[in-house]
Simulated scan of single mutants.
Amino acid sequence: MGNDSNWLKSEMVLVLSPKKQSTISKGSFQDMLEALGVRETGLLSGNPNQYQFENPLSFIGKYQFGEILLIRLGYYKADIYYGRGADKNYWRGTWTKKKGIDSKLKFLNTPNVQEEAIREAFRVYWKDINDILSRQGKSINNYLGQKKTFNDKGKSKTITITLSGIIAGAHLRGPDQVVNLLVTAKVSHDEFGTSIVEYMEMFGGYDMRIENL
């Protein structure tokens, strides 16, 4: 949820989808999206109020979009935003009218745009993760399908690294923190104490492929 503000500056590169995938699936990509919406809002799958949900830090919608993400995706513009001069998402900037969205209220009341935006976000996360790793001379394919053990607040946690888990971890903490976890085993947490490892385990193992986004 609380993506690092430095993430906004990272470049994007196009990469091929990974060949290594978990052979055991928790469900389809749509199942993963529904599970993510439930976790982000606390509301049951199919509840239309998911799209209007706003948390105490004013992350909004079914997938809890923040200012920094919608800036990156081209829906919103602001010089001061959460993570850069603001202590929450105040939404005092300007909406760009991308896909007809000209206000926070319209974004909250346009479910199909939220569904399109989360897919855009996933593509950006994937490209950024690969870009950051490539700058370090590494490849995501060295990690996918591997079991890794992390120390999360004093507790040992072993998870299998999967594409859907990586993307969910990036949605929670940003692509840079996913790379930090993979390369240095450093575990990060969001403003409410939610662990990136928790998200990567909870949403890992879904049948997700980048080319289908």
Rank of each mutant, 00 (worst) to 15 (best):
L144M: 15
K62N: 06
R135W: 02
F53W: 08
I140E: 02
T41C: 10
A168P: 01
I166G: 01
L133H: 11
N6M: 11
L181M: 15
K127Q: 15
I167M: 07
V113L: 04
P48R: 01
L57S: 11
Y143M: 02
E201S: 15
F107R: 04
D4V: 10
N112G: 00
W91Q: 07
G37Q: 07
G83F: 02
K155A: 12
I71S: 02
K155P: 00
K186C: 00
F107N: 07
T96N: 12
D102S: 14
D176V: 11
G46Q: 08
K148E: 09
V178Y: 05
V13W: 00
R173L: 14
V38E: 15
G93K: 03
Y81S: 05
K148G: 00
I210D: 05
F192T: 13
N142G: 12
K148Y: 07
G137H: 06
R84G: 00
M32F: 13
G193F: 06
L36H: 00
I60F: 01
I166R: 02
T194H: 09
A78R: 01
K26T: 09
N142P: 00
G100R: 11
P175G: 05
Q21S: 13
G42C: 09
K138F: 06
M12S: 14
I159D: 07
E34I: 09
K106G: 05
T194C: 05
V187I: 10
L8S: 07
S156T: 10
A35C: 08
I80E: 09
L108M: 14
E67I: 10
L181V: 07
E40I: 05
I196G: 12
R173E: 10
K19L: 12
V197Q: 02
P48I: 07
K97P: 00
I140D: 02
K62M: 02
Q136W: 04
Q52P: 00
A117L: 10
S139T: 12
G169D: 01
K77S: 13
F107W: 13
V179Y: 06
K9S: 14
R39Y: 11
A117F: 08
D128E: 15
R72C: 03
Q177Y: 14
E115L: 13
K20I: 14
K19S: 13
V178E: 05
S5Y: 14
G174L: 03
F53Q: 10
Y199K: 03
K148R: 15
V124Q: 02
I60K: 04
L16W: 08
T94E: 13
I71Y: 01
L133T: 05
K97C: 11
L33M: 15
A86D: 15
M200R: 03
F122S: 04
N180Q: 14
K62Y: 03
N180I: 03
S103W: 10
K106H: 08
N49Q: 14
G174S: 07
E201K: 12
L44H: 08
K98G: 09
